[in-house]
Amino acid sequence: MKPRFFRSIAAQIALLPAWLIVIFAYLGTIAWTIRISFTSTKVFPTYDFVGWKQYERLFATDRWIISGQNLFIFGACFIIGCLIFGFLLAVFIDQKIRAESVFRTIFLYPYAMSFIVTGLVWQWTLNPTLGVQQTVRNWGWQDFTFDWLVRGDRAIYVIAIAGIWQASGLVMAILLAGLRGVDQELWKAAKVDGIPTWRVYLHIIVPMLSPMFVTATVLLATAVVKVYDLVIALTGGGPGISTEVPAKFVIDYLFNRQNVGLATAASTVMFVTVLVVLAPWLYSQYFRGQRGRGA
């Protein structure tokens, strides 16, 4: 532990903005949101108490149920896709290849771009009338069909593909740093033992990188819950309501459909879900580790 006797009024003053933000912008707003979710608020806050009514209505709303399912489908595809693809990229880049930095730069650049840009690019590329489908047909394959973007049962996967395109580089960068940190003598030992390279990766390296996999997963999962702009740019939630997601649900009901009570109930559900998933990880990551370091 760092010594506690170095105290200063200045330190408290310096932290004042942080306290204000934490108390008002974080804790205060969360409490407020939760409070409103138990009212019948439409546009302007009314502080009555209607119990779980908003929540009952929420889970009776098709759009919310579909949003939840989509979040799950998108999340699973996106996270697993990014992890596998990103891991493969990192491993292949780690094979002492030529022009390594060129490949690295190419794999990571989409991560610098916004979801809006990502969404618009993929929307244009995959639009059935003038995009890839039409191009391939022009090349002679008249029956070629790739119209997932306008198919209600497939459009969510297109969003996942665009997401994977954008964020795989992130996983690659994180894992590559991990791979570069592996003791070179470990590789030598495995070579003397005659262990095939792929087995070294699978049995020795992957277990060693598990903290990095966890970190990457948390970062990706955070992005999944927040996903909004990508959907807006790519499908706008359509066709129909087939690609709605919770984040969009909340914004729509807050600002367009003027049903704040329902929107806050939805955001409270999001908040609690995230909290339940994250709390143990956050605790182990930041606070247990800290005690160890202080010794």
């Binding site: 003791d183 003598e185 470990l186 030598k188 030992a189 070579k191 003397v192 005659g194 020795i204 060693m208």
Partner: peptide, 20 residues
């Protein structure tokens, strides 16, 4: 290949497989 040379090797950093 190293494995076919009939050698065993011991390293400075031990290079033990960490999760086994």
């Amino acid at each position: 290949e190293p494995k076919d040379r009939g050698i065993g090797m011991v390293f400075q950093s031990y290079a033990l497989y960490p999760r086994m």
